[in-house]
Design a protein around this nucleic acid. Structure first.
Lengths: 221, 221
DNA sequence: GCAAATTAATGATTTATTCAAG
DNA sequence: CTTGAATAAATCATTAATTTGC
C-alpha cells in the first residue's frame, strides 16, 4: 500500500530547471522580522536533487584495502574499526601525554600516522578519544565511589611532569585543574563532513528507487 | 598572574620545520608486531607531526564571499554560519517533511543545494538538524508540562500522507512510531573529518604560540 | 535617529547515554 | 564483557533583535 510511487506527482511543477539557478532573488522580501512562523518561504526548490537511493550502508570495506600492516584481516565485511596493537599503543601514548579531544588538524595527522599500521579513519580516532576519555572518567568515578575511603593520592602514577597543554589556544590557563579534566573548553573543532569519499554508486541493488524525501506535504494541494 | 607563557621553553627542540610534512615516513620501522600489553610499545613515533599551533578559530570567511544571495552581508568576520532565509526555509521544509537526522549523503546534497543561497558547510546542516530537533523536542516537552491536561490526539497535524522514509535503508519498517521520534535508530552515519579545508594560518593573535602537545613523556629519558 | 548595553535565538562543542559488534 | 559507533542532552559562545540613553 505504501509502495505506490508518488514521485511522479509532485514533479510536474519543477520539471524544468534541473539544476536550479543560484543567486535567485525570487522570494519576497518577507518583512525582515516575523521569522516566517507560517511556512513555505522558498517554494521553488529543486527537490529532485535530493531523491537519491541512499545506496545502502556500504562504507569502508567494499574492497579489501591495502592491508599493509601486520594485522590479520579482521574486517572482511568491513563493519567497524578494529584497532591494531600499534594503533592502540600510539593512541594511549597520546592520551597519557594529555591529549583529550584533538581537533581536526590533530586528528588528521594522527590518522595519517596510524593508517600506516592498519586501516583507520578520522572518525575512529575521534571516537576513540571520546570513548576512552569517558570510560576512563567513569572508571575513576566508580573507583572513588566504590571504595570511598583510602584516598591515597589518586592517579598518582603519571602526574608529575606532563602537565602540558594540548588545548588548542587558550594555553591551559592554569586553573590548576588538578583532576586533569576540566569540563567544557570550547575549542572550535572545525571538522566537517566529507561524505563518502567517492561517488561510488555501484551498489547492490536499486536502479531507480528514486524514493523521494517527501511529496510536498498535504497542505498546499 | 598565571599569564606566564611557557611556550618558549619546550620549543628549542623542534624549532625548525615550521610546516610539517605529513606524509612523513621518517620514523623507524618499529618492529611490526610484538605490541605487548604493557606500554610504550611504539616509542619511536614522530611526535613532531602533531605539534601544531592550532591556528585559532579562523575558518570560513577570511574574505567576504560572493554574497549573491538576497541576504544582507551577515558574516563579514566569518565566524559562524548565518543562515539565509532561503536556507532556513528549505531546512524547515525538509524537517517538516520528516527528515530528522540526515546521513552523510543527504547532508552533502542538502549542502550542495543550500550553498546556492549562501555559504554553508555540511556540518552546518548537521548541526541545524541536531539543534532543531532537540529544541523542537524540548519545546514540546515544555508545552506538555506547562498545560498538562488536554491530550487531544497528540501530533495529529501531519501524519497522514507523508510517512515517507528518509531513514537511510531500513525503510521506516512501520512500527508506527506515532511520536514521530523514535530514539536510537543506529544508522551508520559515515561522516568523516575533512580537517580544515586550507592551510590558512592567518589568525587574530599569537603569532608564535607553537604550544606542542607533549614533550615525550618523562619515562624514556 | 543612532549606538552602546541587554536580552533572546541559535550555531557549535562537549558530555552522557545507549546500541551493537566481537 | 569490552568497546567502537551513534545519538541525545547539556551548555558554551556568538550573532540578531530589542531596549535604553543620548
Amino acid at each position: 500500500m505504501g509502495s505506490m510511487k508518488v514521485h511522479q506527482l509532485a514533479r510536474g511543477f519543477w520539471e524544468h530547471e534541473p539544476s536550479l539557478t543560484l543567486g535567485c532573488k525570487r522570494l519576497r522580501p518577507l518583512a525582515p522580522k516575523l521569522a516566517n512562523t507560517t511556512d513555505t518561504t522558498v517554494t521553488s526548490f529543486d527537490l529532485k536533487s535530493f531523491i537519491r537511493p541512499e545506496s545502502g550502508p556500504r562504507k569502508l570495506g567494499s574492497s579489501d584495502e591495502k592491508r599493509t600492516s601486520s594485522q590479520v584481516e579482521t574486517h572482511p565485511g568491513g563493519t567497524r574499526w578494529n584497532p591494531t596493537q600499534e594503533q592502540i599503543g600510539i593512541l594511549e601514548m597520546l592520551y597519557r601525554g594529555g591529549m583529550r579531544t584533538p581537533n581536526a588538524q590533530q586528528i588528521e595527522q594522527i590518522t595519517a600516522q596510524l593508517s600506516k599500521y592498519g586501516k583507520i579513519e578520522g572518525k575512529n580516532v575521534f571516537y576513540w578519544f571520546q570513548n576512552h576519555k569517558a570510560r576512563e572518567r567513569q572508571k575513576q568515578k566508580r573507583n572513588s565511589l566504590g571504595l570511598s575511603h583510602s584516598p591515597r593520592t589518586p592517579t598518582a602514577t603519571i602526574n608529575s611532569t606532563i602537565s602540558l597543554d594540548c588545548r588548542g589556544n587558550q594555553a591551559v590557563t592554569e586553573r590548576d585543574h588538578h583532576e586533569e579534566d576540566s569540563p567544557y573548553k570550547r575549542k572550535c573543532r572545525s571538522w566537517a563532513f566529507e561524505c563518502f569519499e567517492e561517488e561510488s554508486m555501484s551498489c547492490k541493488e536499486e536502479g531507480d528507487r528514486t524514493l523521494e524525501l517527501f511529496p510536498l506535504h498535504p497542505e498546499g494541494r
